Computed example of a mutant assay.
Amino acid sequence: MAINRKRLAFFERWFDPVAEQILGAQDDIELVRLSYDAAAADNWAELATSCGYQIGARTELREPWFGDAALLARCPTLLAISSTGAGYDVIDVDACNAAGVIVVNQSGTNSEPVAEHAIALMLGLTKRVGFSHRAMLKGTAHDRLQLSGNNIRGKTVGIVGIGQIGRLTARYCAAFDMTVLACDPYLTAAQVAERGARKVDFPTLLRESDFITVHCPRNAETLGMFDAAAFARMKPNAYFINTARGKIHDEGALIEALTAGRIAGAGIDVFDVEPPPPDHPLLHMDTVMATPHIAGGTVETHYDMAKATAEQWIALLRGRVPPRLVNPEIWPAYADRFERIIGFRPDPLPGA
């Protein structure tokens, strides 16, 4: 039987209430608010009859509500899962492909604040902002010369992944007359140049960069790519910045590299466990500036991201091709399921 009112499930709240306002005003969409504290059986009953699932960010998301094969098996009418931001590592895309479920994200909706945050960490580290603040709190900031930092003008920055966020980071670095390198295996040298950087391989980026900033997704290719060997190849006066995802860098290897003085410092917005426990070693190092995965979370971006998410859900549930589709290769299988569940066939992919 065709579904006239599509159910869209989400846990707790959106980053900005504008999403709920927009979606709640649609006659053909029924919003289903779930709670992590509710009985699991009640949540499963709601999800089992939903067409869409707006999954939470990793920091807030709890088991067993990850977008994995087990969840998909219990949700026969589920057509799509949407991530909160650009990252979608809480969703098993292969499992979704097998189930005929499309995955969408919010790529591009929070690029500016993440790039700005990376620059802020670079400046904070090289100007020794965190170190000086701690020295003042300890009463040891008597000799200002000992607190002297460095300029970033003329330095070399290496960007790992020059997509939406990396491209903006390159532009902002150019304002400081920095030399910009980029390692991105999915772009040609010409494409990287168009984005304001010189394409290099990973060993070259490690060897030549004064700052390394990570802007790639977390996946099988990037998990643990910054290990002990990678940190050992960096300059001893170089800084490592990660505003992308935890586990792209090996936390133990980073702690060891900082303790041994093999690199100068690190700016970390993402951790293996979020939020990190207050006794986490990185939080107590003078050479580290840490934030709790807030790079993409500004007031302005929360609104923009929530609005874009709502608009994408409306398009998707009305049979249009969503603008930020992660797995277009399964569209034919998805279209068959959509027609069977909703009662009409969605639009074809452009060019199909």
Rank of each mutant, 00 (worst) to 15 (best):
F131V: 00
S132Q: 10
R134S: 01
A135V: 00
A135H: 03
L137Q: 13
K138I: 02
K138N: 14
G139C: 03
G139M: 13
T140D: 15
T140N: 09
H142A: 13
D143R: 11
R144Q: 14
Q146S: 04
L147N: 06
S148K: 11
S148F: 10
S148A: 15
N150Y: 13
N150C: 10
N151I: 02
I152H: 01
I152L: 13
G154M: 10
G154P: 01
K155M: 10
K155P: 00
T156P: 11
V157C: 06
G158H: 10
I159W: 01
I159C: 06
V160P: 10
V160N: 05
V160I: 14
V160H: 10
V160A: 08
G161I: 04
G163D: 03
G163L: 12
G163S: 08
Q164C: 02
Q164N: 14
I165P: 06
G166A: 06
R167M: 10
R167D: 13
R167E: 15
L168P: 03
L168Y: 04
T169D: 07
T169F: 11
T169Y: 11
A170P: 02
R171E: 15
A174Q: 10
A174T: 06
A174G: 13
F176D: 01
F176I: 00
F176H: 05
D177S: 14
M178D: 07
M178S: 06
M178W: 05
T179Q: 14
T179M: 03
T179I: 02
T179V: 07
T179L: 04
L181V: 02
A182T: 00
A182G: 04
A182W: 01
C183A: 11
C183K: 00
D184P: 04
P185W: 13
P185H: 12
Y186T: 14
L187E: 09
T188P: 07
A189D: 15
A189I: 05
A190P: 00
A193I: 02
A193W: 08
E194V: 00
E194R: 12
E194A: 15
E194M: 02
E194C: 01
R195V: 04
R195I: 11
K199D: 03
V200C: 06
V200R: 02
V200M: 03
V200Q: 04
D201V: 03
F202M: 10
F202R: 04
P203Y: 05
L205G: 05
L205T: 01
L206V: 08
L206P: 09
R207K: 15
E208L: 14
S209D: 10
S209L: 06
S209W: 04
D210W: 03
D210K: 04
D210L: 07
F211D: 03
F211M: 12
V214P: 07
H215I: 02
H215G: 04
H215Y: 11
C216D: 03
P217C: 12
P217W: 11
P217S: 02
P217A: 08
R218E: 06
R218I: 00
N219P: 07
N219A: 09
A220H: 13
